[in-house]
């Protein structure tokens, strides 16, 4: 008990003093996760919109596939990306294994299905209302998708935030492809796992507190955005 108390005190000291090691880890986490969510939105928003209103062969199959991918265990994604990027793998020449880029790739794969599946749902619902009007305007399909994406912007922000939440909390994939190398690929979740196993509770706790605060913030943002979106829907 004595030890835990001391660990908490030390954890707060690390946070308040802006400890360099701690900040490095937090900043890398932010960089990796935001980059991954950015790319996931770049792919997932148009993909989801296309699945919602597009007419092309395989649409149903892709929709099922994307929905299934939402539940992918992060360690499996990590394993697959590891095999692709390892020296013997097809992308081995790029020498990306154990770099932040590898972590971004793994997290993008994890988050894209979430963004795409939520986008598809949101855009399909909105299109049920807009379809005849947009068809009466003779909008080309791309402009139609752009109209729907823009008008669903509040709900889509929740899709991005949901992706952000998953990427921040995830440990399995970044551990495998990043390797948790100090000063290079050590992020909050992997650092917590390592420091805890080493008995270095102060840093683990400090990071844990920051992680919890960030998750709570993301969820609060999610709820407030959802609230705004609902007001817009029912207005």
């Amino acid at each position: 008990m004595q030890d835990f108390g001391a660990a908490f005190a030390e954890a707060f000291r690390l946070i308040v003093s802006g400890d360099a090691a701690l900040m490095e880890i937090v900043l890398l986490s932010l960089r990796v996760t935001f980059t991954a969510v950015f790319f996931a939105c770049l792919i997932g928003l148009p993909l989801g919109a296309a699945l919602a209103v597009g007419r092309f062969p395989g649409r149903g199959a892709i929709t099922v596939f994307v929905n299934a991918l939402m539940g992918l265990p992060p360690v499996v994604v990590g394993l697959v990306v590891y095999m692709m990027l390892s020296a013997a793998g097809p992308l081995g020449v790029l020498q990306l294994l154990y770099t932040p880029t590898a972590m971004v790739i793994a997290q993008t794969i994890l988050v894209t299905p979430i963004v795409a599946a939520l986008t598809r749902q949101v855009v399909a619902d909105l299109n049920a209302e807009y379809d005849e009007y947009l068809r009466s305007l003779y909008l080309p399909r791309g402009r139609m998708m752009a109209t729907l994406l823009w008008d669903a912007r509040h709900s889509l922000l929740t899709a991005a935030l949901a992706g952000l939440g998953r990427a921040f909390a995830e440990v399995g994939a970044v551990m495998i492809v990043g390797g948790n190398i100090n000063h290079v690929t050590r992020v909050m979740t992997t650092a917590i796992a390592l420091e805890t196993s080493r008995g270095e509770l102060a840093l683990a706790l400090g990071l844990g507190i920051i992680l919890v605060v960030m998750s709570v913030t993301i969820n609060a943002a999610l709820m407030s955005v959802r609230h705004t979106a609902e007001r817009h829907v029912h207005a």
């Binding site: 209302e129 807009y130 005849e132 009007y133 009466s136 305007l137 003779y138 909008l139 402009r143 109209t147 823009w150 008008d151 669903a152 817009h232 829907v233």
Partner: peptide
Amino acid sequence: VGLVFQRPVMLRRTVRANLDHALAA
């Protein structure tokens, strides 16, 4: 053909932006 629906379809934008969107189309 101009169509006014029984339940008007209003884009989730301002009145001005609704007209602008239609004029662009």
